[in-house]
């Protein structure tokens, strides 16, 4: 009702931090040491415009070609 009287709780911070930490934990495709950092930064950028549920980055190798596939799952409720 009076949002300026209310100290904002830290639960949402916890959720954001956990989401990123767990995503990088789950990523056993950590072929680059900067992967976790990059993921976190991509999430920050995309989040400015639209809600993000999760991001998956996979490295595909086919012959001489190497590609990073970045899959951004959107969060409709955000």
């Amino acid at each position: 009702m009076f949002p300026w009287f209310k100290k904002k709780g830290s639960a949402s911070t916890a959720k954001d931090r956990l989401t990123i930490a767990i995503m990088s934990d789950r990523d056993n495709n950590n072929s680059y040491p900067f992967m976790a950092q990059m993921k976190a930064e991509i999430i920050e950028v995309v989040k400015k415009y639209i809600g993000v549920k999760t991001i998956n980055i996979t490295k595909d190798v086919e012959g001489d070609f190497e590609a990073l596939s970045i899959e951004v799952q959107l969060d409709k409720n955000a």
């Binding site: 709780g9 830290s10 639960a11 949402s12 916890a14 959720k15 956990l18 767990i22 549920k53």
Partner: peptide, 14 residues
């Protein structure tokens, strides 16, 4: 309720 603790729906999402 005051937003200081993760809710069960937050935890289920994660």
């Amino acid at each position: 309720q005051s937003g200081e603790m993760l809710s069960s729906s937050d935890i289920l999402d994660i």
